[in-house]
Amino acid sequence: MTELGYLLIAVGVLFDIFGTFGLVRLPDVYNRLQAATKCVTLGTCFILIGVALSGPSLGFGVRAILCAVFILLTSPVGAHALARGAHLGGVKLWEKSVVDKYEEDAEKVQEAMAAPKAKQSD
């Protein structure tokens, strides 16, 4: 168990390095978000699961898994909010991007945002 945990930690650190390297290397905000959300989230989750597997007690493991679940739930929402905020704030896509449907539909989006929110059952 402990060895498997250390292996997972090593893989997680590796993914973290790839993710942050992408953050430095990729050309615009949206691509950077891609690298940041995917690689760093999964890397940190791997580290936490590794800590849970090789930790000294059960309480340790439960807390680490809880932390991993929180990161897995919150990080895509944060990325989504950031991408939307950046686009509505006027940050353009990289010049070699092939298509931007969101920009083309900007009027429709504004309309939908201005309209009163429809009540919907969950």
Partner: peptide, 13 residues
């Protein structure tokens, strides 16, 4: 958002 090379920017309708 968490799967291959895709990231949701907005949902309209």
């Amino acid at each position: 958002t968490l799967t291959p090379g895709t990231l949701t920017v907005d949902i309209v309708g």
